[in-house]
Write a protein that binds this DNA or RNA. Sequence first.
RNA 1: GGGUGAUUAGCUCAGUGGUAGAGCGCUUCGUUCACAUCGAAGAUGUCAGCAGUUCGAAUCUGUUAUCACCCA
Length: 1049
Amino acid sequence: MPMEKSFDAAAREPALYDAWEKAGCFVAGAGAKPGASAFSILLPPPNVTGFLHAGHGFNHTLMDILTRWHRMKGDDVLWQPGLDHAGIATQLVVERQLSEQGIKRTDLSREDFVAKVWEWKATSGGKIVEQDKRLGCSMDWTREAFTMQGAPGDPSPEDGPNFHDAVIRVFVDMYEKGFIYRGKRLVNWDPHFETAISDLEVENKEVPGHMWHFKYPLAGGATYTYVEKDEDGNVLFEEERDYISIATTRPETMLGDGAVAVHPSDERYAPIVGKLCEIPVGPKEHRRLIPIITDEYPDPDFGSGAVKITGAHDFNDYEVARRGGIPMYRLMDMKGAMRDDGAPYAEAAAIAMAVAKDERTLGEAEADSVNLVPDDLRGLDRFEARNAVVEQITEEGLAVMVPPTDPRLGEPAKALAPEEGGERRLDQLTPLVESKPIMQPFGDRSKVVIEPMLTDQWFVDTDKIVGPALDAVRSGEVKIIPESGEKTYFHWLENIEPWCISRQLWWGHRIPVWYGFDLHANGFRDDEGDGALDEVELGRILSSDSLSNGELKPHCAADFDTVKSRFGDLLDDLPTPLNHARVVEVESRDNALHVMAKSLADYAVSQDPTQLVYPVWRDPDVLDTWFSSGLWPIGTLGWGDDDQSFMERYFPTSVLITGSDILFFWVARMMMMQYAVVDQKPFDTVYLHGLVRDAKGQKMSKSIGNVVDPLDLVEKYGADAYRFNNAAMATMTGTIRLDEKRIEGYRNFSTKLWNAFRFAEMNGALEMQGGARPETSHAVNAWILGETGRARDAVDAALAGFKFNEAADAIYKFVWNVVCDWYLELSKPLFSSDDAALVAETRATLAFVLDRCLALLHPMMPFITEELWAGERMLAISEWPTEGASDLVDPAADAEISWVIALIEAIRSVRGELNVPAGLKVELLQIELDDAGRAAWAANAEIIQRLARIETLTEASELPKGALTIAVKGGTFALPLAGIVDVEAEKARLAKTLGKLEKDLGGLNGRLKNPKFLDSAPDEVVAETKALLAEKTDEKQRLETAAARLAEL
RNA sequence: GGGUGAUUAGCUCAGUGGUAGAGCGCUUCGUUCACAUCGAAGAUGUCAGCAGUUCGAAUCUGUUAUCACCCA
């Protein structure tokens, strides 16, 4: 049955994929040669909520190309797929779904909610898997992993590597090595999701904002002389002031100020450093006083040069406060509203006053319990509170006032003349509020303004684990390409901050740490020293507030039994009866308080120490998603399992291909964590690529509406065309733009290949076995074998260097411009030959060449090549061509066919330029020709005549008048078409060609006459230049002769 | 403000020391049987500017301009 006219991608591609899967082509090690070296590649796990977008499509295509290439080469290949549980994103999706049913997350228990997430995952998660199959990705689906695999609630924990166990083991390991700690730190707080997020998940955006200027009055009405001088020390301005001027973009945080800071060199404020000033907001009778301190942070040239310090709500202030021992007062609750808890303002303010006057100090927990929000502002949203604070200060006259013409106010209000109804008020002052763009942090998922918030969080002490990750890249043990990625990598890691890994979510790996009350540190004294506690002593435990506020005793372990025995050991050291208490797990600290109290009360009655319990509770937080994905290499390969065969075979992995946008998020963290845990690199090479943009170069975004769905393109043009486009766009430095026209072009390319097979079919070449190298007698056949070898070398070299675009370019040019444009055309006369041996040889050659085209193209266009493939095994696991140019090139045939092609092109060019009718068969005159040319003509006369439309070849001793001249290497030909073509046009053509030649010759001569060139240029270059000069000189002479002859007319 | 990268044909981009390339688009011509999702021919560039290094620079160095991204 003859072939269809073209390949029906939409219908055939899915079927071909099924066939691969059924044949087990993608299972780890498929097609591997005995003793093969390993090639492993990790899929950067897409979010379980995700759908295939253009970025995935690009990224996955590149990985598939490498994977298929190595698999065909016979390597032991694993492409490890899987999904990321994506904490916030997934919780958000499921919360949204629940809210459609009118259910809030908090209506459910944590356990029930997590069960809903698993339910959602089973029905709606991981859609991207099917999409990857449509794309042709050859991942080993039998090993599909999930970063929450095996976690509590997982309905099918056996479906993949137990990732949860690995994550918990790593946490415990790193905790025990001292790489992880817990502490109260300022973190980015997302008030929408009510969780900490990392600074990488914060987008800083410039938005219109305001800068308010306020007066902080000096305590007790003190005054000083405020003097401003220019650079030369001349006094510009001088006045007596009883305040210090402060500028802020966030007035609501003034309530939590702990100090005012000025630069130590700032002479303007030197007289008042060390004095106290008043925060100009809050009830008059409880105005707080704060000290004026010096710190390097304030910029004397910015604003007034004085900065208010709110350690609990600003990252810069936090550092200043830490350096200066300034108390940090948290003002907001977890939703970003002003706090509404704790003692009334008057009490809180009194405590803060005492601290400011050095009359008392506060522990961390105590400071956190002080709510300095005035009673009337409590519970307000932070932005409402801002307005209220501004209003109150302004009303009290403590805003800095300026004339309405002050340029800092921006466009001055147009003063209306009294006769126009306006009032003359130029002498009236107005509050100084500058309108200016300010940088504001937004949550990349929630899109709400991020609040720096002082909370208890877990951190990875990155300083302790960053060293090996840096050394590995510095030493070249791990290579990042393109090289610019290494610079970025160093820059970030050399300035790395502690990594906050706790998240206040329900969906994620729960931190394996349990807390109990620290009974050793607080709460009891054994008055009698008899090793036993009486009722009074036990009572003290309950009455002290250390149980509700004090420090806790944490224990970290992979399972509760271990934790239990650790706490048990702790209790053993305690006096009777506490040393008899049983460790029990409760929900929370509050529960524990009740349980503890009840247990002690019961004991007081029963005096039975075996009934005493010691409650412990687990940390409610989960780990940052990037903590678990940081373990992707070892977690997917079974680290810590009994079966270590995959770790041994495939770790460290070979290549990581990922977007440069997650160099920090993921790549750097994998580096740090694999070294920290197994002290090995996670991969040899990291290939970073850019963001995929639309055809105009704009970032794809839902709000612009320019998002391209790669599957639409796949449906329209076939996965092969889409993939080939991805390969062709994958340059080292380039930005990637998705241009549909280009994809269409590659669809056309696949059709071209298809039709080459139709041609082969019609000429009986598809019945041949394409595998073995044919014996060739004809130069055309010998020549194309050499070209095939060159193509293999080019594709191999390109892929080995991760130059996907060069590989695509090489195979495209070979298939279209060499095989289709020339070899198929050159073979036509051979197929119609009477010489049966020649026909057979040509069939075998064509079969061989097309076979190689399929193999070389397969990694990039797997579907159509597999469809056309007729080998015994599927192409996906068939052998990659091994014969290169050095095996296949025949120099004599090469020279002969190159000459033939050049002649055909020259004749066509002359015909085309001078408008010789395309269909007209013309006579060709051979004016002069060297022996090589004569031999080449003789061997290929039929071919040349057919492709150049030549009726006859006649030898002639000189150019007839008005003929068109064709100069080739070693000879001159002519087309005697005096009557048909315009002589003037031929004159013009010759003049133009000669002009170009002369220019070229000028350059060549210039170089060769320069002794320095001859001395310092490499010999090859000199030889090439000389050869080129000779050739061009020759051609010039021939054309000059022709021009002279033409001039005779 | 700091870092990184880019600036080449009308458009989108390759090209890391040896006389500038591709795809698309454009112009002219062409459907005899592999292919009109095609074929043949053609036009198009101060390689952002300036200054260096070199026998030789799109390529290396410095500098300016513009743009993009990342980080403050």
